[in-house]
Nucleic acid binder design. Structure first.
Length: 559
RNA sequence: GCGCCCGUAGCUCAGCAGGAUAGAGCAACGGUUUCCUAAACCGUAGGCCGGGGGUUCGAAUCCCUUCGGGCGCACCA
């Protein structure tokens, strides 16, 4: 257990003991122990930790909060918490705990021992799947996919640190209506390039990437497709294009630092009859009815506004039908939690999806949807419409080329998924040097530089066990305090599905380091102080590196 | 019309199941380098937390209402 959690538990325990003792001695009367918190006050003058327990008890005790706080304070057993120096009652009835300054000195040892695992929590014994991006394999990856990629991958890293067994998955929509249109578009382009005068489908994919793909097909197959039936031809071109697109997606995401454990094909669900099975299953359970030739799922039973079609009048299943089969498959694979990162434009899908899960007999809470608001792309102060079909927008690979993987990932993950995001391309290009990611990376590189200087000067960096940390001053203790928060911060980010917290955390830690660096010298004449500071630098660097690792951003040793 | 997200400093945004005096970056202004990387640091200025009610010891946070912005409400995915 990390030191912060440990001391929190100890403080909490001692308060409970004090309260129970007070009750036994008839100093106070209460029935239920409130669910109070041990928090870190924003203001350092309010101690290392504080609790609101007295305020929470005021009502049931019919006693002023400060009076309750005094009773607790007088009954606290200092022997139970050796690190406790003093307590103060403040404000409306807060109890502030001041700890002996050396309570954090165990931290560097823990960090050094855990290394790359520092920040992680014990195993939760739960399997969680994170599905993200899952872009349609009919076009290039756009800004929404980029944001989803950064958020999903970071979230998966956070969950892994938080003790979950995590699998990353990409769902390939290689079946259905869009694929048919894709096939028709490819065929039309092929025939056009081969000289036929035919109309391009009205809703077809008009992007240049389709033309490029067709040129590759012509290079490989020449005119041999002309003699085929339309069906054979469409199947060939679409399979060719899908293979190419999926390879493109895989490569681009890999360049964005994202690799998946599983690439799941929608088509398999159709081919193996899973979609038909799920319809039959739900029909047997009475959740499906027929109307106007189509089959409807009763999503209104689960709070949705209207029922949803699963089989169209033309006999073909909808996307929703295969998605139900897909999610059933996920649960059958044994995941305790299934998390999907979706764009806000899919939020209408959430209610009925959860409804379907429930209809199948699973707890709908095990399916969690992280909705992220859409990214609006600006160029020259004007919105660039994101359309997969026109292919006029900036793609992820172009973005990586222009601003770099690290800056792009940081930029996307820095903001809460809930907030809509304007991505100003001109700004991103011009100001890439001012991106906050460099601020953090620079902190890491600076520390490395100190170690280089130390080595050049023949200074041996002592192991944390041989160093006396009590010599460190307030700035160093602030850094240590922040570092101590790291596991908690990761756990909170995991609980809230809030990857942006890690970005903010590491910015704050880097800020404390830079401030310290500008005020104090690590390499100096006071050997004991130098030893302690060098060890602190190692602790800081490991924490920054681990945080950057979670964010999928490199930790350079030199800049 | 109904549903979801957002509204916090000039701009972009944090603010962890309500907590003490609301924070950061950028922009502005003024400083810091014979010394471990100035991609840094320090300081100044900047706010009716969209408006209005309510809940309570206590609200940026919860509830209601209203205004403004985004998204969704297909036999598309």
């Amino acid at each position: 257990m990390n030191p912060i959690q440990k001391i929190r538990e100890e403080l909490k325990g001692s308060i409970i003991s004090a309260l129970e003792k007070s009750r036994t001695e008839n100093l106070i009367a209460f029935d239920a122990m409130p669910d109070f918190v041990i928090e870190v006050p924003r203001d350092e003058g309010h101690g290392d930790f504080a609790t609101n327990v007295a305020m929470l008890m005021a009502r049931q005790c019919r006693m002023a909060p400060r009076k309750i706080a005094e009773i607790i304070s007088s009954q606290i057993d200092y022997n139970q918490i050796p690190q406790l120096k003093k307590m103060e009652i403040a404000g409306a009835g807060f109890i502030n705990f001041f700890l002996k300054p050396d309570w954090l000195v165990v931290l560097p040892g823990i960090v050094a021992e855990q290394g790359p695992r520092w920040g992680s929590s014990p195993s939760q014994n739960q399997k969680v799947q994170v599905e993200f991006v899952s872009a349609n394999p009919t076009g290039n990856l756009h800004m929404g996919n980029a944001r989803g990629g950064a958020i999903g991958d970071t979230l998966a890293n956070i969950l892994a640190y938080a003790g979950y067994e995590v699998e990353r998955e990409f769902y390939i929509n290689d079946a259905g209506n869009q694929i048919d249109i894709f096939a028709q578009s490819l065929e039309a382009r092929y025939l056009q390039l081969m000289g036929a005068k035919i109309e391009f489908p009205e809703n077809g994919y008009a992007g240049q990437d389709v033309v490029d793909t067709v040129k590759n097909i012509i290079r490989d197959y020449k005119d041999s497709l002309l003699g085929m039936t339309a069906e054979e031809r469409q199947e060939l071109v679409v399979n060719y294009a899908l293979k190419e697109k999926i390879q493109y997606i895989r490569n681009t995401l890999s360049g964005f630092g994202i690799t998946y454990d599983v690439w799941f094909n929608e088509k398999i669900l159709h081919q193996t009859g899973k979609v038909d099975e799920i319809i039959k299953n739900l029909t047997d359970k009475g959740y499906i009815y027929e109307e106007e030739g189509a089959w409807w799922f009763k999503s209104t039973l689960f709070g949705d506004e209207k029922d949803e079609v699963v089989i169209r009048a033309n006999g073909l299943p909808t996307y929703f039908a295969s998605d139900i089969a897909y999610h059933l498959n996920k649960f059958e694979r044994g995941f305790d939690r299934v998390i999907n990162v979706w764009g806000a434009d899919h939020h209408g899908h959430v209610g009925r999806m959860k409804g379907a899960i429930q209809a199948l007999g699973y707890d709908a809470n095990r399916l969690e949807i992280l909705l992220m608001q859409l990214v609006r792309l600006y160029r020259g102060g004007v919105i660039v419409r994101m359309s997969k079909r026109t292919g006029t927008t900036v793609s992820l690979d172009e973005l990586i080329e222009e601003v770099g993987k690290d800056a792009a990932r940081f930029f996307f993950v820095m903001r809460s998924p809930d907030s809509q995001m304007d991505f100003d391309l001109d700004l991103a290009k011009e100001k890439s040097q001012e991106n906050p990611v460099y601020y953090v990376q620079y902190a890491h590189a600076r520390i490395q530089s100190i170690f280089r200087q130390a080595k050049a000067a023949g200074v041996l960096v002592k192991g944390v066990g041989e160093v006396d940390f009590s010599i460190l001053g307030t700035e160093e203790m602030q850094i240590l305090r922040k570092i101590a928060d790291f596991p908690d911060e990761i756990a909170t980010s995991a609980r809230m599905l809030a990857p942006h917290r890690i970005a903010h955390y590491v910015l704050e830690l880097a800020g404390l380091f830079h401030s310290f660096y500008n005020h104090q010298r690590v390499l100096n004449d006071n050997k004991a102080l130098q030893d302690a500071r060098l060890a602190l630098m190692g602790t800081t660097q490991t924490t920054i590196r681990n945080a950057l690792n979670i964010l999928g951003i490199s930790a350079p040793e030199q800049m």
